[in-house]
Write a protein that binds this DNA or RNA. Structure first.
Lengths: 125, 125
DNA sequence: CAGCATCCTGCGTGATACTG
DNA sequence: CAGTATCACGCAGGATGCTG
């Protein structure tokens, strides 16, 4: 069996991590899901908070991110099989264990990364 | 100094983080640098450890990653201005503060990510 | 040795339209 | 509502070759 196919497989945990969270929204999705299950549409609109309401994320994109996260085992898809459609996404155990990592990232980011439009000189070192 | 370029600017620390470490090698470079300064060539060959010696990283690519990291303020470039050229890269204070974050990532990754076939405990820290 | 200049390619991202 | 199907585009990433 081998090697060569697994999407997430890599000798370096960092590289594997990179692959897992590749994409603009995966981290944010997982983070948003930490408070509980959310529906497709909720995630979609939730991703826009803070943005100047430009265009919404393309469904194709969100769809793929969600699928990738599911295949990574971070989230779980629950289809209620009703009409109109209702689908919820929630963190798996693995996904929950990942939340603190994102927390660390956010924590570091909020201290060392210029956020918002306030670009405070990163400089001086 | 201080270019108010919005290169890293984003309202969401996570997104800013994503931008900062975008690219296949940035995280690994920073991690490699945690043990001390390294020269261009050392970083280049160091990035190959574990790979089956396919092709080396294109200089253009490494160069760009290095430059981006420098502009992000994570690493610092030191040119000795000699012949033949000698250039060292080292972590800045900011870069050092970022190492634990990568540590958290590696730690999580080594536990939850399938790492190819060779899972050699990264644990030892 | 430590890069830069040029060309090329695949994929991630986005916009639009359509469906069960 | 929760997606899928198509088309298009920009850019990261790799391959060479050259230079101070």
């Amino acid at each position: 069996m081998g090697q060569a196919k697994s999407t997430l497989t890599c000798r370096c945990p960092v590289a594997a991590f990179q692959k897992m969270i590749s994409g603009k929204y995966k981290l944010r999705i997982v983070w948003d899901l930490k408070d509980g299950p959310r529906r497709y549409g909720e995630i979609r609109t939730g991703l826009l908070r803070g943005q100047d309401g430009t265009s919404e994320i393309a469904p194709r994109v969100l769809s793929r991110e969600l699928k990738a996260l599911t295949e990574s085992g971070l989230i779980d898809r629950k289809d209620y099989g009703v009409v109109p459609p209702k689908v919820e996404y929630r963190l798996t155990r693995k996904g929950k264990s990942f939340v603190p990592v994102i927390g660390a990232i956010r924590n570091w980011g909020s201290r060392h990364l210029a956020q918002g439009n306030v670009v405070e000189m990163v400089a001086a070192e």
